[in-house]
Every structure is written in structure tokens, then in C-alpha cells.
């Protein structure tokens, strides 16, 4: 698959826009999921994930083919999510809770919850709770946790994506694991 993406990138660099469609198709779910985990809001996640692909396309000339495209793409997406978090108005969280489309609130809106077997409801509730706890972490911890345990990147790759030294990645991931341990120990 790496070779497939590499070939497509070469075609895009030559100016073939349609080759980029395969690239978007391949990465769309991963990038959208990453943005959703970083932002905790479906509407914003879609917006930012789209922006990430458009930026990647516009700046494709600056992508070094010797490197991994996924790392480069995640870097663009992560920077955009962090930018977005910074620009948020203070009342954003309140708004998103009222609209109730994300996180824990969604569960209470599911109309068929009574029909699900008890265990499934429990696990769905648990998953949403974990999701919510991750989204409550400061962005610099949230990014390393999602990249490491949800996107399965190595520490070295995370260092490239976030453009920070490997030692800093380790420190952040240690702190993030400790923070989540405290939040999730009673689950």
C-alpha cells in the first residue's frame, strides 16, 4: 500500500489531480478520526480533515518523497486541529454540549438503547466515556495519545509528525498515560 500511495503522489506532483482522489480515499477515515479525537466535534472534524487534504494537495511540491506520506499528512492535520483549538471561543464547549452531537451526550439521544443487550450498551457507554476522557486532556497530550494508541504510530514517527524531539514525545506520553490512568482507574 505504501508503494501505491508513493506512485499516486508522483502522479499528483506531475499535475494529475485525479490521482489525489485515491490518496484521499485511502486516508479519509484515519484523518477524519484523528481530527475527531483531537477536536471532539464531528462538524469541526470534517471541516479540518478536508482542509488538511486540500493543504496537502496545494503543498505537494514541498513533500519529500523519501519520507512517509502518512507522517506528513498527519502533521498537517494535527497542526490544523491545534490551530482550531486555539482559536475557539471560550463558550465553544457549552455550545457543543447544547447541540449534543458528540461525546457522552450522544448516548442519551440514542432512541433504541433499550433494545440493545445490556452488555453492548455498557460497552458503548464505556467507549464514549473513554473517548470523552481523552478529549479532556490538554491538546499536547491528546495528540500523542491518539497518534500512539489509536493510529499506532511509533514514537519516532510521532516525533516527526509533531516536529518535536523524541525525548519530548516520551515525556508527553508518560504524562498523558498518567493523566488517563487517574481518570480511568475507577471505570
Amino acid at each position: 500500500m505504501d508503494q501505491f500511495i508513493r506512485d499516486k503522489i508522483i502522479e499528483v506532483k506531475k499535475g494529475d489531480q485525479s490521482a489525489f482522489e485515491d490518496v484521499v480515499n485511502y486516508f479519509q477515515h484515519k484523518i477524519y478520526q484523528h481530527c475527531l479525537r483531537m477536536l471532539g466535534n464531528a462538524h469541526e472534524a470534517e471541516d479540518i480533515a478536508q482542509e488538511a487534504f486540500i493543504r496537502a494537495y496545494i503543498n505537494i511540491e514541498s513533500f519529500d518523497e523519501q519520507r512517509k506520506f502518512s507522517t506528513w499528512l498527519y502533521r498537517i492535520a494535527t497542526n490544523l486541529t491545534i490551530d482550531r483549538i486555539r482559536k475557539r471561543k471560550p463558550d465553544f464547549y457549552l455550545d457543543s454540549k447544547i447541540k449534543g452531537t458528540e461525546g457522552l451526550d450522544m448516548y442519551s439521544q440514542l432512541p433504541d438503547q433499550g433494545k440493545l443487550p445490556g452488555e453492548e450498551v455498557e460497552s458503548l457507554e464505556l467507549k464514549r466515556y473513554i473517548h470523552h476522557e481523552i478529549s479532556e486532556l490538554p491538546p499536547k497530550y491528546r495528540s500523542v495519545i491518539t497518534l500512539r494508541y489509536l493510529e499506532e504510530f511509533s514514537l519516532q514517527e510521532i516525533s516527526e509528525i509533531l516536529d518535536i524531539p523524541l525525548g519530548t514525545v516520551k515525556t508527553r506520553i508518560h504524562r498523558a498515560r498518567e493523566a488517563l490512568r487517574k481518570r480511568l482507574r475507577h471505570v
Binding site: H29, Q33, L36, E46, V187
Partner: peptide, 10 residues
Amino acid sequence: LIRSTEHVSA
């Protein structure tokens, strides 16, 4: 627990 969270689609 973190790894058990569901995967979402675009």
C-alpha cells in the same frame, strides 16, 4: 481501554 474505542468513518 484506549485501544478499545471504536473506529469512526469519515
